[in-house]
Design a protein around this nucleic acid. Structure first.
Lengths: 329, 329
DNA sequence: CTGTTAGCGCTTTCAA
DNA sequence: TTGAAAGCGCTAACAG
């Protein structure tokens, strides 16, 4: 059967305490350390996490709650969260909430059960009531209350950026296409600030902002584009919505980016090595993930952490906007 | 501080055992059950997983080892694994191995540390030596030894299917495009059986099968297509490779599917709701995930499980093959 | 049916 | 520097 610390102690001819010390890097006489290490190797001993946790109340595990891992944006985020946790010797417990609050709540309970030390969550449902300030929780893209820590992309600047990039590329009549939910979240600024900036730049600006869940975005876009045939630049709330828009544009016999330029939001790539799916206002996903992990582990370790972190968005050129002559960067 | 079972027992005026029984659904007198439940609610009590695990040696957690979650195929697989585990009250610990054997090994150790009950792994590195038959491990797409359980898609039939679908759509000169690794794995059958079937059908068949890692697949494909200008149907080893092929084809001024039809392998969709990225031989990802979980949990629970499970592949039409008149399905 | 009790494997005083 | 011993919070066997 599995070797225990007792077995190791007996084989090494030392006390239980010494074995524990060696394992936890507490200084011991070199000769005893050697004996213990030899015994550990011989018995192929591995410490039982449960017994240890019972004493230490630490799990070195963090839960990540996402709507679904089956989405390139969340997958990228999860990738970087896991990578960063790994570097700090933590493990990642993954939860696809599918938007179900019960499931999110279940994971929140786990920190009380000592199953995880804390939670990083991208959640759009109303779990405010369960998120207390005493719970080690970092929210992404969603503001709860004063004392719940969150990190987000600069959606304000992101929206403006989209308007400016379209303007620089000669668009005259732009549009925002997207959806929104009842719950307040940061993404609403994408529309608002795009619109403001477009108007400031003297562009005509239309808005198609549906309430989610959206039945059939493509046909809504089709009607919209038919209604405003002079639109030559579109900013969509996400890259996936941009794909829908492009599909409709092609169906209507127009070309991207020649007739209509499209800029999405998120910075989607199917894999690390791939190209951007569309021209996009990219979220600094890696930075967001690292920041979220840092903040969370600070809280877990009892340190202070700022409650609001806003990270910059950046335009990334894909194949859905025209090339600029005087390339900057 | 956190309430313990003792606190609950005291408050309810019963013994420790009764509390434990209530929690574990062992029949007790209704009146005691009520008292206990009331106390639990009042104290907001949650059982400590660690203390319980120390006794039971169960974690109800399974590790999933993938090359990277940031890839639509692995993300989809992970999605279904988590969903199935959730239904069985298990949790998922996620590991991006990035192909590093040390990291894979670390997770294998966790089984011995009681951190996880078992492992589902998609791994292409040489960790055979650590995978013993006593380790609850289910391998995907990769054969280790006789007694390591694995589940895979029917790559043999998949390859044939691709040849047949191209043939049905009028292709005369087909090609396989892909890469392979030193380690033996099931995917090699995709090329082999495609080639055999194409020849059987009387199609001319070229092969571009590079050794991974591949520096620049697109330029290799470009050379290849320039060398064989009459190719009118391509089967790629993955959907992602198909995307590369399409890119090259367009660059060469030809059209997909009019001039060259392309069929990939995997059945990639960016999200659950999205369209197939290309016409494809789809792996039954959901079925694979459910099967893998079933097999693993059987082993974890000490039951027997078949060591080889092969699941059927199926052709899924995307936009990169011609529509057939007499649609079957 | 229920209270008491003996550990599970480890960490951490406390003496020595 | 170290061994012995006392729990951590829970489950399960046992006696009532």
């Amino acid at each position: 059967m599995k070797a225990t610390m007792k077995d190791v102690a007996k084989l090494a001819g030392v006390g239980l305490g010494s074995v524990s010390r060696v394992i936890n890097n507490v200084p011991v006489k070199e000769s005893t350390a050697a004996k213990v290490k030899a015994a550990i190797k011989e018995l192929n001993y591995e410490a039982d996490i449960y017994a240890r946790g019972l004493k230490t109340n630490k799990t070195y595990t963090v839960a990540l709650i996402l709507p679904t891992i089956w989405h390139p944006f969340f997958a990228e985020f999860a990738y970087y969260v896991e990578t960063e946790l790994e570097e700090r010797n933590y493990k990642l417990l993954l939860c696809n909430s599918d938007g179900r609050p019960e499931k999110e709540y279940e994971y929140i309970q786990m920190v009380r059960q000592n199953k995880v030390d804390g939670i990083i969550g991208i959640t759009y449902s109303d779990i405010d009531q369960y998120i207390s300030s005493s719970l080690p929780f970092v929210s992404i893209d969603r503001y709860f209350t004063e004392d719940v820590i969150y990190v987000t992309t600069d959606n304000v600047e992101g929206g403006r950026l989209a308007a400016r990039e379209l303007f620089k590329r000669g668009a005259k009549h732009v549009a925002f296409v997207g959806g929104h939910q009842e719950t307040p979240n940061e993404t609403k600024n994408r529309r608002k600030c795009f619109q403001l900036e477009a108007e400031r730049l003297g562009l005509e600006c239309e808005v198609l902002d549906l309430l989610e869940p959206i039945e059939d975005l493509q046909s809504d876009i089709e009607k919209f584009l038919l209604e405003y045939p002079t639109i030559d630049g579109i900013f969509t709330i996400t890259d996936l919505a941009a794909l829908d828009a492009i599909h409709v544009i092609n169906k209507l016999g127009k070309k991207v980016p020649e007739d209509i330029q499209v800029i999405g939001f998120d910075g989607l790539k199917m894999t690390k090595e791939a190209q951007y799916v569309v021209s996009t206002i990219a979220q600094p996903v890696e930075d967001m993930a690292r920041t979220a992990v840092s903040l969370l582990l600070n809280v877990v370790e009892g340190k202070e952490a700022p409650s609001r972190t806003v990270l910059p968005a950046a335009f990334k050129e894909g194949a859905t906007t025209k090339k600029l002559e005087n390339r900057e960067e």
